[in-house]
Design a protein around this nucleic acid. Structure first.
Lengths: 122, 122
DNA sequence: ATTATATATGAATATATGTTCATATATAAC
DNA sequence: GTTATATATGAACATATATTCATATATAAT
């Protein structure tokens, strides 16, 4: 019994040596966690609608955003906060109004790849 | 009062005409929903670990996968089902053993873009 | 100052999602 | 056939997440 706690089944097709190699060379959990968290941001209809709208108009105030995507001001604000915290959007204030816009080069690429993927699939 | 139900606030910075233009030209909700669903698949640590492991080894059985990423066989199986249903992985059976591998060209690109994004950010 | 407007946010609620546990199924070994 | 193994899956549970509602805050208009 040398395989200890890593032993879930007796199959171990690729062999202990390769298994341990893989286990060691995997990116640290933290990186993988961060990647998952990043994708999670995109994994919500409301946020995707916001992102999409900001692609089209470049800059929008909360109110107009809310009307355009048809979601309550409160819900939009809540989601904008998440997008802000992830640094995916930036904002500027002008009087009472707050204008939001996209704040990341990668977003467009990633978003478009996904869109392509979905569209091709059909 | 012509702005009717689309009227959430009086701000309407970009104007009704442009608002309605945007509302009409937005991709249908369904497409945006599908895109969000697609990202949702990547938005989980366990699934990202699976995807990452399959990048490294190309093909892995459930058991070895489970050992490599350090997550129970049951949880891995459940997540593999989700990945299967989204057609992100394919599998082949060999006796008792089931081998999984990635089944999509786009995944690598999207995954790598996200990884880049996260790494650059630091 | 008072009132109206745009946005943000806390709390409550509802819903979705992931894990575990127990167990089913399928195949292999004996 | 019986037993062991690899995988899949349903149910229960725990946790996370999004929305709504009420309200706070900040600015503008009167």
């Amino acid at each position: 019994m040398k395989k200890e706690e890593t032993d879930v089944c007796k199959n171990n097709v690729i062999g202990d040596i390769r298994i341990n190699e893989l286990r060691k060379n995997l990116p640290e959990d933290e990186l993988l966690f961060d990647i998952a968290e990043f994708f999670k941001i995109f994994g919500d209809s409301t946020r995707i609608k916001i992102i999409n709208a900001l692609f089209c108009e470049n800059e929008l105030c909360v109110c107009d955003l809310s009307v355009i995507i048809g979601i309550s001001q409160s819900a939009v604000s809540h989601q904008l906060r998440i997008l802000r915290q992830s640094k995916l959007v930036k904002y500027r204030k002008e009087g009472k109004t707050v204008f939001y816009s996209l704040d990341d080069e990668h977003i467009k690429q990633i978003y478009n790849l996904a869109k392509e993927h979905i569209t091709e699939e059909k």
